[in-house]
Design a protein around this nucleic acid. Structure first.
Length: 587
RNA sequence: GGUCCCGUAGCUCAGUUGGAUAGAGCGCAAGAUUCCUAAUCUUGAGGCCAGAGGUUCAAAUCCUCUCGGGAUCACCA
């Protein structure tokens, strides 16, 4: 249960009763009344702004409303103390028994705790990675991959029906380049000395094995043939090989898609024509001229008539071309048809995860989604900023031209998938991110992955240790469902209750992070839980009564183990939303 | 020049879609190991939330302008 929602219901009911009994006017609009954590935990566990929000409508002083409401809430058994503070906040501290009940929920819920139905099964499409199939994935792709995957998991946890989708950009001119590069490697495999890879072709050696295989299976059939004979076939072969490589790399990161959509297939099926025809029927397509960009004029600027989409009618800065000079569709045109295709498959909420360098593309794409859906669908674009790789304090230089970029695979092989995934979520998606090889493999609190994993390993260590030192025949069953039934009235220390309050905040964290489409919040939440747990652990060093295991007090030990088990369960559950496995021990 | 993102402690960043005295880590200063992993914890100093207006009970958050950093700017994807 989201205890904030629960208390919001309680507050709303009391407000209605106040209205009914004449303490407040009737017919008040309660929609802005909220029950939230206070900024400063010394103010209490939850706070409501009801008195301030209603003051104007009710034509009463906030303090008067607050006093009346507080007087009613005071009788509620879940509320231990209540006070009116500041301009009219009502601060509530909840009773220990309320928190004990939440702990039981955490344990009984296990991995499913925090799962919400706010999504109401609504279909959401998350499109991410969508790297061009022209080479291996590099670390920049890794960030988009992790953000998209974690967002998909988060939305699923919040009750949405999520589809993870990869859009294969396999129709543009870079595919011609890919096919030509492959032909060169094919000739090389047949024994030809190809020398330096010419400028404009892909120099990486990942096409070498593909060329070799071609030479084996096809012999020299295409060696001297004109380009027009082999281009199409080489394109298909190259795309398949690259996508296979990309899938493998993504799998190494633990990322799997439900749907791969091919731009090439869309174009071949005439989907672009359909989409453009629809826009045309709405009067949104016309022939016209664009103003050149202000400021510096591009060298090759040519003022000419083009086929344009009226994206400016939907908030874009200017209208956008949908055909190239040679009459073929622009990338934008096929992207319109792709998003239309997603809408026709029932996705009214679409999320795209892009690199920050595509920021200038957001407005037109949102405009297009609005236009093709008649305003029924909405697109949210998450832009992922750059990842800066650091090693020994030095930036690892990446140059695509020389082919010396660091691949996703290399990073995953070096530090592990869980580390990559976690670190990629330690910043907001639109903030630049430093990925420091030294830091992320370090076993210290500088390393957030370690800090959180260590907390989990410690919880598991205590549970193992309890069973060993006391013996399970005396201690009893300490599985989470059994611990859920434990009498926890012995848990009264403020830090213990604070830890439970954090655990109990997990459902709300899921809901708010999902609503905001911000998976990084899970990483910050985890850091908080880990910190609260480490803190409690160390408190037991000074205060023996706060230790977890007492051989002569099984009842208290079980209560403490319930606390520990709850922490373990919530940490593991939150890590799972990030796609990270919780570790049992760190040795 | 247009557009978008960013500007919060010395550094790296959070800030729960408008809430109270703005938080955390690193670094700095001082401390804590008879126990289950000190691989951790506790305390302290450190701020004109880039700046100026506006909106309202309430602004780091929303609006306008200025300054500074980044991305991008027809016919690439």
């Amino acid at each position: 249960m989201n205890f904030f929602s629960y208390l919001a219901d309680v507050v709303n009911k009391e407000l209605e009763q106040l209205s009914a009994s004449g303490g407040l006017p009737e017919g008040l609009d309660l929609k802005n009344v909220s029950v939230e954590p206070p900024r400063d935990s010394s103010h209490g566990d939850v706070a409501t702004n009801a008195a301030m929000v209603l003051a104007k409508q009710a034509r009463m002083k906030p303090r008067d409303i607050a006093d009346a409401l507080a007087a009613r809430l005071e009788d509620n058994a879940d509320i231990e103390t209540i006070e009116v503070a500041g301009p009219g906040f009502i601060n509530m501290r909840l009773s220990p028994s309320f928190w004990h009940a939440r702990l039981a929920e955490v344990l009984a819920g296990g991995a499913g705790y925090g799962t919400s139905d706010v999504g109401k099964g609504e279909k959401v499409n998350v499109e991410y990675v969508s790297a061009n199939p022209t080479g291996p994935m590099h670390v920049g792709h890794a960030r988009g991959a992790v953000v998209g995957d974690a967002l998909a998991r988060l939305l699923g946890k919040a009750g949405f029906d999520v589809t993870r989708e990869y859009y294969i950009n396999d129709a543009g001119s870079q595919i011609d380049v890919l096919a030509k590069s492959l032909h060169l490697r094919y000739r090389e495999a047949l024994g030809e000395d190809i020398g330096e890879i010419p400028e404009g072709l892909y120099p990486g050696d990942y096409l070498i094995p593909v060329g070799q295989k071609l030479a084996e299976t096809m012999g020299d059939k295409w060696r001297e043939a004109p380009e027009s004979d082999w281009l199409e076939e080489f394109q298909v072969i190259a795309i398949d090989a690259m996508m296979e490589m990309i899938r493998t790399d993504l799998a190494a990161l633990g990322i799997v898609f439900n749907v791969f959509s091919s731009e090439r297939d869309l174009v071949k099926a005439g989907e672009v024509e359909k989409a453009i025809a629809q826009l045309d029927s709405l009067g949104l397509i016309y022939e016209g001229r664009l103003d050149p960009p202000k400021g510096k004029l591009p060298d090759d600027w040519e003022d000419r008539e083009q086929t344009l989409f009226k994206s400016s009618e939907f908030g874009d800065d200017t209208d956008r071309p949908i055909k190239k000079f040679d009459g073929s569709w622009t990338y934008f045109a096929s992207d319109i048809s792709y998003h239309r295709n997603k809408f026709e498959r029932g996705f009214k909420t679409q999320i795209d995860v892009w690199g920050a360098d595509h920021g200038g593309y957001v407005k037109r794409m949102k405009a297009a989604v609005q236009a093709i859906s008649g305003g029924e669908a909405a697109l949210d674009v998450k832009l992922c900023n750059l990842v800066k790789l650091l090693r020994d304090g030095e930036q690892v230089k990446m140059s695509k031209r020389s082919g010396s970029f660091v691949t996703l695979r290399e990073v995953v092989d070096e530090v592990g998938r869980d580390v990559v995934r976690f670190i990629m979520l330690t910043r907001r998606n639109d903030a630049p991110l430093d990925f420091d090889f030294n830091q992320v493999t370090e076993q210290s609190r500088d390393n957030p992955v370690f800090y959180v994993q260590y907390a989990h390993a410690r919880t598991r260590s205590v549970l193992r240790n309890a069973a060993e030192t006391i013996g399970s025949d005396v201690l009893g069953d300490i599985s989470y469902p059994e611990l859920a039934k434990t009498d926890c009235s012995g848990l009264t220390d403020p830090d213990e209750l604070a830890l439970i309050r954090l655990m109990a905040s997990w459902p709300r964290t899921v809901e708010t992070a999902a609503a905001a489409h911000e998976p990084h919040r899970i990483a910050f939440y985890l850091h908080e839980v880990a910190s609260a747990f480490h803190s409690l652990w160390n408190k037991g060093k000074d205060d023996v009564s706060l230790r977890f295991i007492f051989e002569d007090d099984i009842s208290l030990t079980r209560a403490r183990l319930a606390l520990i088990g709850g922490a373990a369960s919530v940490i593991a559950g939150a890590l799972d939303v990030m796609g990270v496995e919780a570790l049992e021990e760190l040795r």
